[in-house]
Amino acid sequence: MQYKLGEFFSGPGGLACGAMQAKVRVPGKGEWSIKHSWANDRDEDTCHTYKRNICRNDNANSVICADVRSIDISENNPLFRDHPFDAFAFGFPCNDFSNVGEKNGLDGEYGALYSYGVKVLDKFKPKWFLAENVSGLTSANDGKAFSQIMNDMRECGYHLYPHLYKFEEYGVPQTRHRIIIIGIKDDIKKVYYPPSPKMYSDIDVSAEKALSGIPRTAPNNEPSFMTERVRERLSYIKPGENAFNAEELKKHPELQLKVKGATISQIYRRLVPDAPSYTVTGSGGGGTHIYHWKEPRALTNRERARLQTFPDDYVFMGNKEKVRRQIGMAVPVAGAKAIFEAVLKTMADVEYDHVDCNIDFKN
């Protein structure tokens, strides 16, 4: 059994890469898997990355670069007509739901974009879907945003299984927490459970392990430009410290940041070698690029991609800053793979070690 996956807000392909890696062998029934059918993102370089890695042998008409608000969600659209699908994924934009920022929720510029994924569910009725967003989704608009999103999805005819995943518990060398909603059609009598982190407890998720052994020829591995002033500043910051709490740096006022009220913990924060990285982000300026625990430098994009568990041969297209943004906005491949494998096992009636959903919602 092979499901055909369609995607909105596909990004550079973190979800798709994880989906394609997910395989479940069922005695007497063969292999259950997922393949790419179509995808959409509005950024041109991001779409080039997706095409280059996910469907390089395709003639590329299965990846549409466009604002989702401009897409005709109907059978008349060649994207849907020529690329049938029975599974769907959409990591709708998190800007207005993030705990960092103004938290405008559904009232923000991006808050209502989830509704375009709901339109796909309502129109095409895929057998199951995966929706992804930040942990702040449940608190946006005093919780009303999450309730509305869940009700809109449910009214399309799905049982819903929302869960807050801590990806460092699933083989990802990074403390990245995201809400994943799995939906299964009402007429399919299956119940989804999140996979138990115990199945991944033997994986070394330390930053040192994640960044070791990168081939010199790996793509997107160019070092970032570092001024001597930044290098000197980093020399006084110990692993785990940042530009505001480093005691040694306080002895050098000429190197301290002159930013009133700024205490963001990620600014010039250095990694701890025997612990997972802090969250890889796609936005922000100097001081937010993630910094090596020993060497006085920012990580390369390939090292950041390692923290997001992308394969070393995964090529990101665009200039260095655009690649950095793509990597930071992606879903970690290993985390996606773990969840998709649990979905496949659910659909194939294969038992697996699981936990209960940790977000209350009554179907």
Rank of each mutant, 00 (worst) to 15 (best):
residue 333 V to F: 05
residue 178 R to C: 10
residue 14 G to L: 02
residue 291 Y to E: 04
residue 339 I to W: 06
residue 265 S to K: 15
residue 270 R to Y: 06
residue 249 L to E: 14
residue 250 K to G: 14
residue 40 N to Q: 14
residue 82 D to L: 06
residue 328 G to A: 02
residue 220 N to D: 06
residue 358 N to F: 05
residue 155 E to N: 15
residue 139 S to E: 15
residue 360 D to H: 11
residue 109 E to N: 12
residue 184 I to L: 10
residue 77 N to W: 05
residue 87 A to V: 04
residue 352 Y to H: 03
residue 26 V to C: 09
residue 264 I to H: 14
residue 269 R to I: 02
residue 208 E to P: 00
residue 199 M to H: 07
residue 265 S to N: 15
residue 350 V to G: 01
residue 158 Y to K: 00
residue 189 K to N: 15
residue 277 S to Q: 03
residue 254 E to Y: 10
residue 115 S to W: 00
residue 339 I to F: 03
residue 223 P to N: 09
residue 41 D to N: 13
residue 228 E to N: 09
residue 75 E to P: 13
residue 108 G to Q: 05
residue 28 G to D: 03
residue 247 E to M: 14
residue 307 L to Q: 02
residue 175 T to N: 11
residue 243 A to M: 03
residue 123 K to E: 08
residue 316 F to C: 00
residue 259 V to H: 04
residue 142 D to A: 13
residue 16 A to C: 02
residue 63 V to A: 06
residue 114 Y to H: 14
residue 21 Q to H: 15
residue 187 D to N: 12
residue 185 K to N: 05
residue 86 D to C: 11
residue 113 L to Q: 05
residue 129 F to K: 05
residue 69 R to A: 14
residue 62 S to R: 07
residue 146 F to R: 01
residue 297 R to V: 12
residue 281 T to C: 12
residue 113 L to N: 01
residue 117 G to Y: 01
residue 266 Q to H: 06
residue 87 A to M: 10
residue 133 N to V: 06
residue 217 T to E: 15
residue 57 N to G: 08
residue 276 P to L: 06
residue 196 S to C: 01
residue 163 H to P: 00
residue 139 S to N: 11
residue 231 R to C: 12
residue 175 T to R: 15
residue 358 N to Q: 03
residue 41 D to V: 03
residue 220 N to A: 00
residue 254 E to M: 12
residue 47 C to L: 08
residue 280 V to L: 04
residue 259 V to W: 13
residue 307 L to W: 11
residue 156 C to L: 04
